[in-house]
Simulated scan of single mutants.
Amino acid sequence: MTRKKQIIVPIVVLLTGIGLFGAFASMKKPPEEKPKVDNTPIVSVTPINVEPKQLSVDSYGVVMPKYETELVAQVSGQIVELSDVFVKGGFVRKDQVLAKIDASDYQAALIEADANLANAKAALEQEVAQGKVAEQEWKRITDTMPTELSLRKPQLAKELARVKAAQASVLRAQRNLERTEIKAPYDAMIESREIGLGAYVSTGRKIGKLLGTDIAEVRLPVADSQLEFLIDGGEQAKVILSGNYAGKKRTWQATIARSEGVIDANSRMSYLVAQIKDPYGLAHNDKPIRFGAYVTADILGMEVAAATAIPRYLVVDNKVAILDAEMKLRYVPVDIVRQEGPDVIISGGLHQGDQLITSALDYPVDGMQLALPKHLLDEESESAGDTQIASIKE
C-alpha cells in the first residue's frame, strides 16, 4: 500500500501542476505583434526648371572720360574776360568761349600784315606792268630772243614771293587773333581752371582741364578663361553697369567698343572697354554716371537654349541624383557649361520637371527605393485629385 502511494502521489502532483499551468496559460494574453518598420530612406527633392538662359561675365571698373584735354595758352597776354561756366564742375558746349586774352596787339599785327600784303600786291602789279613794257621794247629793238633778265622775270618772281610771304603773315596774324579767345574743343565738363581774371599768361601756360561729356569709358578686366562665354570675344556686347548714385542703386546701359588686345603683365587679365553715351544725361535728362565712379558690370554673352542652375555640391563626377517616377534613385550624367558662384549651369542631361534630390544619403546605390516626406506626398495626392476633378468636368 505504501508503495502504491509513493507512485500515485507524484503523478497526482504532476498532473495538478500541469493543470494549473494550463489554466494560468489560458488566462495570459498573447503578445501583441509589433508593426513593421519602414526603413526606406526619405529624401528632399526640388523640381527642375529648364529654360533659355543668357550667360554673362562679371567685371568691374572706374568710369573715365573718353577724351580729356589740357588747355594751354597759344598766345601771350593778359586775361581780360572769363566765362561764368569756366569753373570746376561747369558744363560747356563745343566752341563756347571760356576766356579771352587782350587782343589789342594782335589786332594791330593783323592790320600791319594786311598793309604789307597790300604793298606787296601793288609792287607785284607794278612789276608785271614793267615786264610787259620791257618785252615790247625788246621787240622793237631787235628780233633776237630776249633773256629772262631783260624781261624782268627774276624781279617778277621776287615780287610774287613777297606777296606769298605777306599772305602768310596775314594768316598768322588772323590765327593769333583767333587764339586770344580760348574755346572748348568739344562738349565738356571743367575739371580744373588754372588762371584768374587779370592774370598774364605766356605761350604754353596751362589754362585748365576739360573732360569730354559725349562718351565715357570703363576698362573691364576679364579672365582669359571667361572670354569663351562671350560672342566674338565680347566685341559689341551689351553691358549692364551697376553703381550708386545719391545713395541708391542705379543701372546704366553700355556697349563694348573694343578690346585692348593685350594681357596685363601684373593682373594677367584681358581688358575690354565699355562705352556709355551721354554719361551725365545732358541730352536725355537721365541720372548721370559720374567720372571716377566705381561700377560693377555684367557683360552679356552667349545664349543657351535649354539650361538650368543647380548647386555645385549636388554634382559628383559630372552626375546628379534624381528621383524617378518609380521613387527610385537614379544617377544622371549632365553637361556643365560653367560655374556661377555656388551654382553650376547645366545644358544637358536634365529635363523639365525632373525631381532633383537635394538631401544627403548615407549609402546611395543607383536604383535603391526612396520615399518623400509625408507632407510632399499629401501635396502630390491633392494635386493629382485636382487634376482628376478637372478632367471629369471637362
Results as ranks from 00 to 15, higher is better:
K5Y: 12
Q6G: 13
I8N: 01
I8C: 02
I8F: 03
I8A: 03
V9M: 12
I11N: 00
L14N: 08
T16H: 10
L20R: 06
F21A: 04
E32R: 15
E32T: 12
E33Q: 15
K34R: 05
K34C: 02
K36Q: 06
I42A: 05
V50T: 06
E51W: 04
P52D: 08
S56T: 11
V57S: 07
V63I: 03
E68T: 10
Q74W: 02
V75N: 08
G77D: 14
G77I: 14
E81C: 12
V85F: 08
K88W: 01
G89W: 00
G89M: 02
V92R: 00
V92D: 02
K94C: 08
L110P: 01
I111D: 07
A113H: 15
N116Q: 15
L117T: 13
A118N: 10
N119C: 05
A122G: 04
A123L: 09
E125G: 05
Q126A: 12
Q130D: 13
Q130G: 08
A134G: 11
E135K: 02
Q136E: 07
E137V: 14
E137S: 14
W138T: 15
K139F: 06
R140C: 11
T142E: 04
E148F: 12
E148M: 12
E148V: 13
L149A: 08
S150V: 13
P154C: 01
P154D: 04
Q155V: 14
R162C: 12
K164N: 15
Q167E: 14
L171F: 01
L171P: 00
R172T: 14
Q174F: 07
T180Y: 03
I182N: 02
A184C: 01
Y186D: 15
M189F: 07
S192F: 07
G196E: 12
S202E: 14
R205L: 02
G212V: 01
G212K: 00
I215C: 14
L220F: 03
V222T: 01
L227M: 13
I231W: 13
D232A: 06
Q236E: 02
A237T: 02
K238I: 00
I240F: 05
S242E: 12
N244A: 10
Y245G: 04
A246K: 13
K248H: 12
T255V: 09
A257Y: 03
G261S: 05
N266M: 15
I276C: 05
K277W: 10
D278W: 05
G281P: 05
I289C: 09
I289A: 05
R290M: 05
Y294N: 07
A297H: 00
M302Y: 12
E303G: 05
V304M: 10
P311Q: 00
L314P: 03
V315K: 13
D317P: 12
V320F: 03
A321I: 09
L323A: 11
E326G: 03
K328R: 11
L329P: 10
Y331S: 08
V334E: 12
R338V: 09
P342W: 11
I346C: 03
G348E: 00
G349S: 00
G349I: 00
L350Y: 01
G353M: 13
I357V: 11
D362C: 07
Y363D: 15
D366F: 01
G367W: 04
Q369P: 04
Q369H: 04
L370N: 09
L370T: 08
L370G: 06
H375C: 00
L377S: 03
A384P: 00
G385I: 15
D386H: 04
A390C: 12
